[in-house]
Write a protein that binds this DNA or RNA. Structure first.
Length: 476
RNA sequence: GGGCCCGUAGCUCAGCUGGUAGAGCACCGCCCUUUUAAGGCGGGUGUCGAGUGUUCGAACCACUCCGGGCUCACCA
């Protein structure tokens, strides 16, 4: 079998042929080019340089049409032997779909009415060695789309659009907060105590200190140290890591926005959160994303206990005892197991209430026992000054008046301390120096992106969602 | 981790009751100077996810493993 059948082998042969004729298949630059969208806006007869990846070819003997794609879109190129010369036209015939090329020529309009560049010269900018996914059906295989995201964003415009939405969203978040004098900071990702949330952390090892470290599960405790230091308005937009299962709503690494404002309580954060999300949503809408009117309209405010009552038909109040909760869980077919009171309530809430909260809703009245870093309500110590934000039945954010009493905080920490969560004495010490009253807000940026783009799984808004690593044998 | 479903050509997918694979796009050869899912003629390029078993014979049946999807569980 002399005949090369494999598409990659055929392309490699073309690469060798290019090199043998003294052409660099990977030149360093292509200067003075304009992008496809700008080119299409220009007048007929204009000479210009465009470049991009060959996406389709229509070869008709001595002339051919190709479409090239750049970040702005696509533009058609006309390659004709009497414009390019025999040698260059032959060179063009060896280009494949997927190759990057650069072209110079005049703009003209074809019989069919499409603005097209009449190539006078053309150059290979990067030879592609593998065939691209099919032009018409695109790339559908979910696993390949996630593992080889570069192909997904290349051939599936919808994927690209949703993923790019993240950039728009983070940029608008920054703009919104910076306008309000919040200062963006970066706190440690590697922490010796993984605090600020309750989740199993990833462990890692620092060689020089020969010590175990944890990937952060939340930046919260570091950000509040900054409040101690006198920085009144800070925010961090960064990755958290939680060593837990994956689902349509969960990825082990995810992006969190945390915002803190000194001298405010959770009512301030409620307004800020609503304004923030609405302002981002407005930007998205402007960019023609299908933002639901619910988000731009009036947001509901509902009480945790009232919601439990409404959706279970059972009577719930902050004064509920462990035994009562257990009985209700039983009645509601929620196996209580060895769960604590707040965990049982949380389970019932998740099962009966969360998916009903489709319009944007602030839920308040959470039990203090489930809110260790929050201040209690002055009216009822069983209740925390806290709210969560729900949109489309998913928990999008969490906020509270921050606990700044070092003694209460320490007691709570001691009560919760276990092998996974040792007491962060250094944080308590910081509070002992004095932290101003403050409120804090956390928003899951991935979930916010889902809500604003209509993505149904978190994987669609993550460029490279976590998948099980392929073992070395089956790796290409 | 449990349950259900899926894995066939580079891509998108067919493949019946078990008889050793097929289409479109892509690719290869020839023709073609305004095409655009270009067209015409000719050509399947495959470790049917992997392995074991049942069988005269396995893409198909059974079991194990690998990877994926949905779902449940886990998840302050």
């Amino acid at each position: 079998m002399n005949k090369k059948q494999d598409q990659t082998e055929i392309r490699k042969d073309k690469l060798i042929k290019l090199r043998d004729s003294g052409i660099d298949p990977y030149p360093h630059s292509f200067e003075n080019r304009i992008d496809a969208a700008d080119a299409l806006g220009m007048k007929e007869g204009k000479k210009l340089r465009v470049c991009g990846r060959v996406m389709s070819r229509r070869i008709m003997g001595k002339s051919s049409f190709v479409h090239i794609k750049d970040v702005s879109g696509q533009i058609q190129i006309f390659m004709a032997v009497d414009k390019l010369g025999k040698e260059n036209y032959a060179l063009f015939r060896d280009t494949d779909i997927g190759d990057f090329i650069g072209v110079e020529g005049d703009l003209f309009v074809t019989r069919a009415g499409e603005k097209t560049v009449m190539a006078e010269t053309f150059i290979v900018l990067s030879k592609s060695l593998r065939p691209l996914p099919e032009k018409w059906h695109g790339l559908k295989d979910v696993e390949t789309r996630y593992r080889k995201r570069y192909l997904d964003i290349l051939v599936n415009p919808e994927s690209s659009k949703i993923l790019k939405a993240r950039s728009i969203i983070t940029a608008s978040i920054r703009e919104f907060l910076e306008c309000r004098k919040f200062c963006e900071v970066h706190t440690p990702v590697l922490q010796d105590i993984a605090g600020g949330a309750a989740a199993r952390p990833f462990k890692t090892l620092h060689n020089v200190y020969n010590t175990e470290l944890y990937m952060r599960i939340a930046p919260e405790l570091y950000l509040k140290r900054l409040l101690v230091g006198g920085w009144e308005r800070v925010f961090e937009l960064g990755t958290n890591f939680r060593n837990e299962g994956l689902s349509a709503m969960h990825n082990p690494e995810f992006t969190m926005l945390e915002v803190y404002a000194a001298y405010t309580d959770y009512t301030f954060m409620m307004n800020l959160a609503e304004e923030l999300i609405k302002s981002v949503a407005a930007v998205m809408k402007e960019k023609s994303f299908p933002v639901s009117e619910d988000i731009l309209g009036r947001w509901d405010r509902k009480d945790y206990w009232q919601l439990l009552k409404t959706h279970t038909g059972e009577d719930f109040s902050p004064e509920i005892t462990y035994e009562e909760a257990k009985q209700k869980a039983d009645k509601l077919n929620i196996p209580p197991g060895k769960d604590s009171l707040e965990k049982i309530l949380d389970r019932i809430f998740s099962h009966y209430v969360e998916d009903k909260l489709s319009a944007p809703t602030f839920v308040t009245g959470y039990p203090s026992s489930a809110s260790p870093l929050a201040k209690q309500s002055p009216d009822n110590p069983m209740i925390a000054e806290r709210f969560e934000i729900f949109i489309n039945g998913s928990e999008l954010g969490n906020a509270y008046s921050e606990q700044n009493d070092p003694e209460i905080q320490k007691k709570v920490f001691l009560k919760q301390a276990g092998s996974n969560t040792p007491v962060d004495e250094d944080y308590i010490e910081a509070l002992e120096y004095g932290m101003p009253p403050a409120s804090g807000l956390g928003i899951g940026v991935d979930r916010l992106t889902m809500a604003l783009t209509g993505a149904e799984t978190i994987r669609e808004v993550l460029l490279f969602p976590m998948l099980k690593p392929l073992n070395a044998d089956s790796r290409e």
